[in-house]
Design a protein around this nucleic acid. Structure first.
Length: 834
RNA sequence: GGGCCCAUGGUUUAGCGGCUAUAACGUCGCCCUUACAAGGCGAAUGUCACCGGUUCAAUUCCGGUUGGGCCCACCA
C-alpha cells in the first residue's frame, strides 16, 4: 500500500468531521446495555466567536471523552449553549438594532431564540465542531428555550415547597443615571481620588467617637457604628476639653496633628453597647462589634449606612436586628433626610458643609481608591434596596463542604478554592434579576401582595401574559423580575438528562460522571450546581470534576483585546490544524495555565508529519501481512512490543487520572525515538531483504510493526483524532472491521518483558555508538564499519539474537561481543573501527 | 488584606528523596540514509530562585524570603 506523499489536514479534518456525523460515530445509544459515561459539558455563551481559552479547555475535555468511548463506554456527551445571559442579550440588541427593555418580554425572548437559532448558533457551533469536539450534537439544549424554562421554573417551585426560597428586601446595584439595575459584569473599576472625611459622633458618655468616611452624604441613613472588640482603643483629651475615642493605631498617626493626650487605653469591648448620636441620623445607634473592623484602618471605627456599599450590605446581614433606612430610591435621588431629592455628588457637598458648620467635622484628607462605576456611562453605582428572591442556604455550609469532600477533584488542590469560597459565604443566594429578558419567575401577586405560585402542570408560564388558575385579569400582578442566569445554568445536568425523561435510560444519567470546566468558575458555576443538586436531589451532580487552566498570552499573562495579543483559534486551525491545536492543548498539565507559544503548534505539525511518514513506511511493508502472530518473535521485535506495552500501561493509567499531558509526553518520546529513530532503522533490513534475512524474520517484524503502530495511533487518537482516523482508515479499519478508530477498542498490549528490554537497550546502544563514530568523522551513516567491539551484560547466546539486526543497522562487517562482569559499574562498552 | 498555584539551560517544560537532572524549540557542526531535508546524527548550554532545617543523602520533604500568576475581598 502506498500512501499519498503528504497529509493534507485542511482536506482531511472536515472530511472526517462529516464522516463522524454521517456515521453517527458519537451518537449516544439510549437503548444500549453498555456502561454509560456522562459528561456535563459546560454550555458556553453564544456571544461571538469561540476563543482560544474555550478551544484549550474543551479540547482537554474531549481527550477524556474520546478515551472513555474507546474504553467501551456509551457516551452521554451533550452540548448546550447558555443563551440566558446579558452578553447574548446585548449582542442581539446590537445586531437587530432593538432595545429589549422597550419590547414585550416574550417577543424579545422569541427574537433572541430565533436569532440564535438561525444566525448565531450555527456559526458558533461550527467552531466547536471544527476543533473536533466529539459531542453528540443531537443532544442539545439552550438555557433559554421552553424545555429549560420548564425545568428552571419547576426547580424554583420545588425550592418554594421546601421553604428554601424567600422574598426579602435587599439592595441591588443600580445606576442612578441610566436608572437601571446593573449586574456585576456591567461594572468596571475606576481609580480615583476622593475626599476622606473624619467625623465626630457624640457618645452617651459625653465623649466623641471618631470615624472616617468617603460617603458623608449617607449620614441620614446611618444605622450603626462598629469597632473591633478585641482591638486596642484609647480615650484622648484635646486642648479644648473634648475627649475622643479612636483606635490605638489611629492615635499614633493622629497625635502629632491634633496634639492630644492619651487618657486611657482599653479593649474595644469596653465601649460596646454605648449609644452614639450621629449627625442627621434619626436615632442614636449603639456601638457594636463587627468582624470586618480592623483597628489599623482609619480610626478603627466604621459607620454603616443603608446602603453605602457591599460592606454595609454584609454588615446588615450580620446585624439582623437592625432595620435599614433606605436612603435612595429608583429615581437615583435620596428620598430621606436633608438631602432629599439630590443626587450623590450634590448631597456630598452639602453634607461636608453641614458637618463643618455644625462642628462634626474633624478633618479632611484626599485618598485614592477604586470604585465601581457603570461601564456604559461611567457613573458610580449606588445601592438601592428592593424586594428580591433568595435561595436560603447559609445554614447548609457544612453540607456543601461535605459534598466538596465527596467530589473527586482533578487536580486535587482545586478543592481549596471551593472550600475557601464556602467558608467566606455571608449572603444567601439572590436569584432575581431586574432584567427584561430571561426565564420569568412563575409567580404572581394578589392585591395584598401575597405571592401566588404557578401550578407545575402549566409550566412554563410567563406571568406577564398568563394568569394563574382561578384568577381573572386585574386580580393579580405578574412578577416582572427574571431568574438569574446562574440559577438556570446550575441545572445543566438536569437540562441535559431530561431530554431523555421518557426513556428508561433517564435513571442512569444522573448523577453524571464528569464535569469539565476551567478554574475561574469554581466558585459560582461549580458551586451553584452542587448546591442545586444537593437541594433538589440530595446528591452530587457529578462524581468527578476536571479543572482546566487558562490559555495565556506568550508572556504568561491574560490575553486581552486591548493589548491586541488575542490569539484566535480559527486562525490557528487555518494555519496549522485542529489536531495541532489539540496537541498544544495537551501540552499543559491539567489545571495548569499554558502560555501560547507558536512553536508548540509547529511541534504538533511536525508530529503529524512524522506520524504520516512512519505510517507510510509501515503500511508499505504490511501489504502482505498475514495478521498472524509469528511462532518465533525476533528479540528486537519483542523489545519494541515490550516498550510499547509499558507505554500503553502508563498512558492508560494517566488517562484514568485525567493526566492526558503525561500520556501525550510519554507517547511522543516513545514514538519519535524508540519507534522511529531506533526500531524502524534497525528493522528496515529485515523488512526489505527477506531473501537474505529470512521470511519468518520478516513476518516477525510485520507483526511488531502492525501491533505497535496500531497502538500508537489508538493512544494518540483522543488527542489527534483526525490524522489517526485517516491512517486507521487507510489500512487498519478493514483489518479490524471497525468504522472508526474512535469506537475501536483501547489497546491492551501486554508484552512487557525485562529480558527483551535489556537486549533492545544493548542494540540501541550499539547503533548509537556506531552513528556517533561516523558523525565524529563526518562520514555518512551508510559508511561501513570494519569492526565493532561490544560489551554488555547479556549472555553471548542472547546476544546472537540481536547480532544480525545490529550488523545491518550499523553496516558493521564484523561484531565481537564480550560479556561484562555483572558487578561492573558500566552497562555497556564499545569500540568502533571504521 | 485572605486563599491557591508556580519558580529547573536563551524559551517552554519532565522529574518530586539516591543513576552523568528530562524532552522540545532555538544555537552550532555533520549527513541525500530504498518513510520523512517539513528529515536524520551528534555537540554545547543548568550553583534545579534565595536562606535555613530534617536526612547518610534534598531539584525533590519542612519553615522562611524574594519574584510571578490567578481567584476572592477591597476598605472606613
Amino acid at each position: 500500500m502506498e500512501l499519498p506523499k503528504h497529509y493534507d489536514s485542511k482536506e482531511a479534518e472536515p472530511k472526517w468531521q462529516n464522516y463522524w456525523v454521517k456515521e453517527k460515530i458519537f451518537a449516544f445509544d439510549p437503548d444500549s446495555d453498555k456502561k454509560i459515561f456522562s459528561v456535563d459539558t459546560p454550555p458556553p455563551t453564544v456571544s461571538g466567536k469561540m476563543h482560544i481559552g474555550h478551544a484549550f479547555m474543551y479540547s482537554q475535555m474531549d481527550f477524556i471523552a474520546r478515551y472513555k468511548r474507546m474504553n467501551g463506554f456509551n457516551l452521554f456527551y451533550p452540548f448546550g449553549t447558555d443563551d440566558n445571559g446579558l452578553a447574548t442579550e446585548r449582542l442581539i440588541e446590537k445586531m437587530k438594532g432593538v432595545k429589549g427593555s422597550k419590547m414585550d418580554r416574550s417577543e424579545f425572548a422569541k427574537l433572541c431564540l430565533d436569532t440564535l437559532e438561525k444566525e448565531l448558533r450555527p456559526e458558533y457551533l461550527a467552531d466547536w465542531k471544527r476543533i473536533g469536539i466529539s459531542c453528540d450534537w443531537n443532544i442539545f439544549y439552550t438555557t433559554l428555550d421552553e424545555h429549560s424554562q420548564r425545568i428552571s421554573q419547576r426547580m424554583f417551585l420545588d425550592l418554594v415547597k421546601q421553604k428554601r426560597v424567600e422574598r426579602k428586601f435587599s439592595p441591588i446595584t443600580f445606576c442612578p443615571v441610566c436608572q437601571t439595575a446593573i449586574a456585576q459584569v456591567e461594572m468596571e473599576d475606576v481609580e480615583k481620588t476622593t475626599e476622606l472625611v473624619y467625623v465626630k459622633g457624640k457618645v452617651e458618655t459625653g465623649e466623641f467617637i471618631i470615624y472616617a468616611t468617603t460617603r458623608p452624604e449617607l449620614h441620614p441613613s446611618c444605622v450603626g457604628v462598629s469597632i473591633d472588640e478585641a482591638g486596642d482603643y484609647v480615650s484622648v483629651g484635646l486642648e479644648n476639653g473634648e475627649k475622643w475615642i479612636i483606635s490605638k493605631d489611629a492615635c499614633e498617626t493622629m497625635q502629632e496633628e491634633f496634639g492630644f493626650k492619651v487618657l486611657e487605653t482599653y479593649k474595644g469591648k469596653k465601649i460596646v453597647g454605648k449609644k452614639v448620636d450621629i449627625a442627621f441620623a434619626p436615632l442614636p445607634v449603639p456601638i457594636t462589634h463587627d468582624i470586618s473592623v480592623k483597628t489599623e484602618y482609619g480610626t478603627g471605627v466604621v459607620y454603616y449606612c443603608t446602603y453605602g456599599g457591599l460592606d454595609c450590605v454584609e454588615w446588615m446581614a450580620r446585624h439582623t436586628d437592625v432595620e435599614a433606612i433606605n436612603i435612595m430610591d429608583f429615581t437615583g435621588r435620596y428620598c430621606v433626610g436633608p438631602y432629599k431629592g439630590m443626587h450623590s455628588d450634590e448631597a456630598r457637598k452639602g453634607a461636608v458643609e453641614d458637618l463643618e458648620k455644625q462642628n462634626f467635622l474633624v478633618k479632611k484628607e484626599s485618598m485614592d481608591h477604586t470604585s465601581n462605576v457603570h461601564e456604559r456611562c461611567g457613573t458610580p453605582i449606588e445601592y438601592v434596596a428592593t424586594e428580591q428572591w433568595f435561595i436560603k442556604y447559609l445554614d447548609l455550609k457544612k453540607d456543601f463542604l461535605k459534598r466538596g469532600n465527596e467530589l473527586k477533584w482533578y487536580p486535587a488542590h482545586m478543592k481549596n478554592r471551593y472550600d475557601n469560597w464556602i467558608k467566606g459565604l455571608q449572603w444567601d443566594w439572590c436569584i432575581s434579576r431586574q432584567r427584561f429578558s430571561g426565564i420569568p419567575f412563575p409567580v404572581w401577586y394578589d392585591k395584598e401582595g401575597t405571592p401566588i405560585f404557578a401550578d407545575e402542570k402549566d409550566l412554563p408560564v410567563d406571568p406577564l401574559k398568563d394568569l394563574p388558575k382561578g384568577y381573572k385579569k386585574g386580580e393579580v400582578v405578574g412578577e416582572k423580575d427574571v431568574i438569574d442566569t446562574w440559577a438556570t445554568s446550575s441545572l445543566t445536568p438536569q437540562l441535559a438528562a431530561e431530554l431523555f425523561k421518557d426513556k428508561p435510560v433517564f435513571k442512569k444519567l444522573l448523577p453524571m460522571d464528569l464535569r469539565p470546566q476551567a478554574h475561574d468558575i469554581i466558585t459560582f458555576w461549580l458551586f451553584n450546581t452542587v448546591v442545586r443538586s444537593h437541594l433538589h436531589d440530595n446528591r452530587l451532580p457529578w462524581k468527578d470534576v476536571m479543572i482546566s487552566g487558562w490559555a495565556l498570552d506568550p508572556r504568561g499573562k491574560k490575553m486581552s483585546k486591548s493589548k491586541g495579543d488575542v490569539v484566535e483559534p480559527q486562525k490557528v486551525i487555518e494555519q496549522y490544524s485542529a489536531d495541532g491545536l489539540r496537541f498544544w492543548s495537551a501540552a499543559s498539565k491539567l489545571g495548569d495555565d499554558l502560555a501560547y507559544q507558536e512553536k508548540d503548534l509547529v511541534t504538533g505539525e511536525k508530529f503529524i508529519t512524522k506520524l504520516w511518514n512512519a505510517s507510510k513506511f509501515a503500511l508499505m511493508h504490511l501489504e502482505d501481512y498475514s495478521g498472524k502472530k509469528p511462532k518465533q518473535l525476533e528479540a528486537v521485535d519483542a523489545w519494541i512490543l515490550s516498550r510499547m506495552s509499558s507505554i500503553v500501561k502508563s498512558a492508560t493509567a494517566s488517562f484514568e487520572k485525567y493526566e492526558y499531558s503525561k500520556a501525550r509526553a510519554e507517547l511522543d518520546v516513545f514514538f519519535w525515538h524508540d519507534f522511529c529513530d531506533q526500531y524502524l532503522e534497525i528493522v528496515k533490513d529485515r523488512l526489505y531483504n527477506p531473501d537474505v534475512r529470512g521470511k519468518a524474520e520478516r513476518e516477525s517484524a510485520q507483526y511488531a510493526l502492525y501491533e505497535t503502530l496500531l497502538a500508537v495511533l489508538k493512544l494518540m487518537a483522543p488527542i489527534m483524532p483526525h490524522i489517526t482516523e485517516e491512517i486507521y482508515h487507510l489500512f487498519f479499519a478493514s483489518k479490524e472491521k471497525c468504522k472508526s478508530i474512535h469506537i475501536s477498542s483501547w489497546p491492551t498490549l501486554d508484552m512487557v518483558d525485562a529480558k527483551s528490554d535489556a537486549l533492545g537497550a544493548l542494540a540501541v546502544f550499539a547503533v548509537t555508538q556506531a552513528r556517533k563514530a561516523k558523525t565524529e568523522k563526518n562520514l555518512s551513516l551508510k559508511e561501513p564499519i570494519v569492526s565493532l567491539a561490544l560489551k554488555g551484560k547479556v549472555s553471548k547466546k542472547d546476544f546472537e539474537t540481536i547480532k544480525d539486526d545490529i550488523m545491518a543497522a550499523t553496516k558493521a562487517e564484523e561484531i565481537v561481543y564480550d560479556v561484562l562482569d555483572s558487578k561492573s559499574e558500566i552497562d555497556y562498552e564499545s569500540d568502533v573501527q571504521i
